[in-house]
């Protein structure tokens, strides 16, 4: 399979890919930031190790705020710290932040224009065994609907580090969606991460697969399967879900004529919606949105759940083949 060489990716099919989590990428990047910039402070709500801010807390105890199980207060304390010139990173599970504290994020952080960074480390079905209450499948939708916040969804450990460094550089509110499970690391330090852009990881002419987060890797595997059947699929990584990269979306609408979107999130309000919103305004083509089809998850291993809900490479390939039939001739 021929990847876009400009992206400096590792072979997604390689069995030797290192596995790590995006939450680990967050924890490591936060520690690096903390060493460089004394304005960086971290807050959590009784989940320091789970959200990987314990590395920061051990090194910089004075700049770490253990808020207790108080996600609402964590958000407003972070706002106050930000108004006073600090750069707070506040973290919990996505179900509780932004799930529990959405209004505080809206009013104090976004409307109040606090230079605060909300990082959720447990999102999507890959949260796994904890079950439906803990599987945030609506967080991107919640955050995308608020003005004045950038929404970033990195696809692996390496990209999570880049997203966190980028978040620190942005002067304003940012949401970063991370995940719990260790996943293959196929991007590299050289892989570009540009705000406002969609990255083309593999070019193709028959169909475009737009993917975000944990499912970018599965989408590349799907493209490899499709290639064996003579179908040329483009795979595009959408890590910035704020304002969409309309020109890239339009270009691939014209080039391929059919889209599949793939995300570990409800099909309403996340990546699928964002792509539809954009393509409708430029060059409408049929879009099949893969994700949770407006239901709650359940307990199980992350991989079992992704399989059960159809979010794996062979099924993405199958859906893509079906989607080819919808193309206008």
């Amino acid at each position: 399979m021929e990847l876009n060489t400009q992206m400096h990716l590792l072979n997604p099919l390689s069995p030797d890919l290192k596995k790590d989590s995006t939450r680990e990428g967050y924890g490591k990047a936060l520690l690096e930031l903390g060493e460089k910039d004394s304005r960086i402070v971290a807050l959590t709500a009784d989940l320091a190790e789970s959200v990987r801010v314990h590395y920061f807390a051990e090194k910089f105890p004075q700049r770490f705020f253990q808020c207790g199980i108080c996600e609402q207060n964590m958000a407003v304390v972070a706002a106050g710290l930000a108004y006073a010139g600090k750069i707070p990173f506040l973290s919990s599970f996505g179900a509780f932040s932004p799930g529990r504290n959405w209004e505080q994020i809206r009013s104090a952080i976004c409307y109040g224009n606090a230079n605060a960074k909300i990082v959720s480390t447990h999102t999507g079905l890959t949260v796994g065994e904890d079950g439906a209450t803990h599987q945030a499948l609506e967080d991107v939708s919640l955050m995308r609907s608020i003005p004045n916040i950038r929404v970033l969804v990195p696809c692996d450990f390496e990209q999570a580090k880049k997203a966190i460094h980028a978040a620190a550089k942005i002067n304003g509110p940012v949401y970063v969606r991370a995940g719990r499970e260790k996943m293959p690391v196929f991007t590299t330090q050289e892989t570009p991460f540009e705000l406002g852009k969609i990255s083309l990881y593999k070019d193709g002419s028959d169909i475009s697969i737009f993917a975000s987060g944990a499912l970018v890797h599965e989408s590349l595997l799907a493209a490899a399967e499709l290639e064996k059947e003579g179908i040329s699929a483009a795979v595009l990584n959408v890590y910035d879900l704020t304002e969409m990269d309309n020109s890239t979306i339009e270009k691939y609408a014209k080039k391929t004529g059919a889209f599949v979107t793939v995300e570990d999130h409800q099909i309403k309000g996340g990546l699928g919606s964002a792509i539809c919103e954009s393509v409708c305004e430029t060059h409408p083509v049929p879009v099949h949105r893969m994700g949770m089809r407006m239901e709650f998850g359940q307990s199980g291993k992350g991989s079992e759940l992704l399989k059960h809900y159809g979010l794996y490479s062979s099924n993405i390939a199958k859906v893509a083949k079906e989607q080819l039939k919808t193309k206008k001739r």
């Binding site: 304390v77 106050g80 710290l81 930000a82 108004y83 707070p88 505080q104 009013s107 104090a108």
Partner: peptide, 21 residues
């Protein structure tokens, strides 16, 4: 120093300011 209106937020914002100072 704060955008307010939704109740129950100011005391926490004040805590953030106080912690930063």
């Amino acid at each position: 120093d704060n955008s307010s209106g939704p109740l129950g937020e100011g005391l926490g914002i004040a805590c953030g300011y106080a912690a930063a100072l």
